[in-house]
Each structure stands twice: as C-alpha cells, then as structure tokens.
C-alpha cells in the first residue's frame, strides 16, 4: 500500500505491506534506528514516537495507519544540532545508563511537556509509567524532565542532586 507522511519534517512516500508495524517501517525502511524495540507487546515504551503531536508506542500501530500523519522520532528533536531541552536534561542530569529506553523516555517527556508546562513530580511519574527502564531506577529521569521543564519555561533548572552528595569518610 502507498502511504505519504511527514517524518521529522520531511515528506515521505512509501509502499508498505499492510502488516508492517510503524516501528519496523521507521527502523528498517527509513533507517531511523533511534526508535528502539524492547518488547513488541506495547509494554516497554522503548518504541515511543509522536504521531501528530501525541505519544504513541509505534509497535502498536501499523505503518498504514500513519498515512497522512506527521511523525516525530528522537532523531527529529534536535534543532540544527542544538539538543532539545529534554535531551539536554537527560544529559545534564545523568538520565541514562545503557540508553536503550532513552529515546522512548524522551519522546514521552516531550509529549508531556507539550501539554503541561509545569508538571508536578507526580505528573511526570505518571507520564512515563508506560516506559520501562532497567538501569537507572528512574530517579534521574524525573530530574531530567524537571530540568527540561524549567528550561522550556525559560527558567534556571534546579541544581543537580549530587551537589549535595553526602560522602562520608
């Protein structure tokens, strides 16, 4: 089937099999391997992208369903090489280890911050409850999103936790 859509601001037309999942279309056909696969069963969130501004787990959607849509993947976030504030937050606040969950986490956070400028910690937690991370324990991911929210509001981000780190000798 022929589909046309916008991916990261670029017009794309393609011929896809009806059974092709959006995540496979992005990774295999478009070479956008920043969108990861962790479970194929809509549980882990590693495949999260924005479809018309809404977060979607791209393993739960067929490519043909994205016909006419505008899709943003993690590769489309940085602006002329300048990291998106959410990406910057994950970097500055040590929000990743292996990084496998990170693109999905980032896209969920971007989705949240598009809707809420000043989410509470609770709202942040609920926004990423569908994204699994096996490495970090999530703590720094919350800090990363708080950092991004402040940045996007034009405020100074809160200082990192480790500036108060307790080291006893």
């Amino acid at each position: 089937m022929k589909i046309s859509l916008t991916i990261n601001g670029r017009e794309v037309s393609a011929d896809v099999e009806p059974r092709t999942l959006l995540v496979h279309f992005l990774r295999e056909d478009q070479g956008l391997t920043g969108t990861h696969i962790g479970c194929e069963t809509s549980y882990c969130g590693a495949c999260t992208v924005l479809v018309d501004g809404k977060t979607v787990k791209s393993c739960t959607m067929f490519a043909v369903q994205a016909d006419g849509a505008s899709i943003t993947t993690v590769e489309g976030l940085a602006d002329n090489g300048q990291l998106h504030p959410v990406q910057e937050g994950f970097w500055e606040r040590h929000g990743l280890q292996c990084g496998y969950c990170t693109p999905g986490m980032i896209m969920s956070a971007v989705g949240l911050l598009q809707e809420k400028q000043s989410p509470s910690e609770d709202e942040i937690r609920h926004a990423i409850e569908g994204n699994l991370c096996r490495c970090t324990g999530y703590h720094n991911i919350v800090r990363a999103i708080e950092y991004a929210a402040a940045k996007m509001r034009g405020e100074e981000p809160p200082p990192p936790d480790w500036e108060e780190e307790e080291v006893s000798v």
């Binding site: 391997t33 993690v74 990291l83 970097w91 500055e92």
Partner: peptide
Amino acid sequence: ESTIRPDGVPKLRGEFMYAQDMH
C-alpha cells in the same frame, strides 16, 4: 567528579549504534 557520560549525546540523539541497529 561527576563527569557527564561521553556516550550520552549519541544515545540521546538516537544515533548510538546498538547491536540491534547494525546493517
């Protein structure tokens, strides 16, 4: 020092090459 990880940027941009991504 709590230096920031050097592989952070490619991981954040979706450019880091995982075994799954090789072609």
